[in-house]
Write a protein that binds this DNA or RNA. Structure first.
Lengths: 116, 116
DNA sequence: TCACTCTCGCAACCTTTGGTTGCACATCAC
DNA sequence: GTGATGTGCAACCAAAGGTTGCGAGAGTGA
């Protein structure tokens, strides 16, 4: 349970650079490795590798345009990814609540015993 | 915006082994590197390293007990982490919705122009 | 007490991943 | 055609995840 999620997706989103890239691509509606690298603390080649990772995870796709390769977020896939993140978060949250309830129940049991 | 989150936290949760470890610790209420490694596809030492990462991220803490070191999830910190994940998910979701709305607005503008 | 067993931590080593530089090739603009 | 710009590929480096091997405490039992 809870790890029904594609590991590739988590590791794609787990990297801070890749999260910023997704942010930039969403804000600007698209971009190339070069334009992205100008706004990131890494070189163009590093950005290109990250774009490769995101591409393999299906989160972005490239559109060749002349000598450029314009990348954009695949919104459907990205929405699915966000939904999966939310689902895992919700599962963990539910589990925490259950633990808390059990802990309180045990406390009650202890109180009863002390009473007796 | 959106990357207000601790990068350490994301990378801690980004690893599939560490997610399963958190799952196991939550389910069993605690465990040692040895007991965890019996239920994971990696060696005890690898688990110990992951526990170190989770510890430095504040998500778990160890309690020495005789010759064992029992690790348990720090529920408060973990709850904070889940909340941050959820918040980033919500931010991305909101951004997607806004993009969709803008796209529809542009479509309407086009339609108007065609009308004129 | 002494031997045995279990659990742990440390060190050495390997592989993958994120990052860099350097270079060759294609494309646009003049 | 020539120069500037954007891309991809290859080699190289450092950090992270993983393994094996070993030595040192902490329990257990004769």
């Amino acid at each position: 349970m809870s790890v029904t999620v594609d590991d590739e997706l988590w590791s794609a989103v787990g990297d801070p650079i890749r999260r910023r890239m997704l942010d930039l691509l969403l804000t600007d509606g698209g971009g190339t490795a070069t334009t992205l690298s100008e706004r990131l603390p890494v070189t163009r080649q590093a950005v290109a590798k990250h774009l490769g990772v995101l591409d393999r995870a299906g989160l972005v796709h490239a559109t060749p345009s002349g000598r450029e390769r314009i990348y954009a977020v695949d919104e459907a896939q990205f929405a699915r990814a966000v939904a999966q993140l939310a689902s895992v978060g919700a599962a963990w949250d539910a589990r925490l609540r259950r633990i808390k309830r059990i802990a309180e129940a045990i406390q009650l049991t202890r109180d009863n015993r002390t009473d007796t």
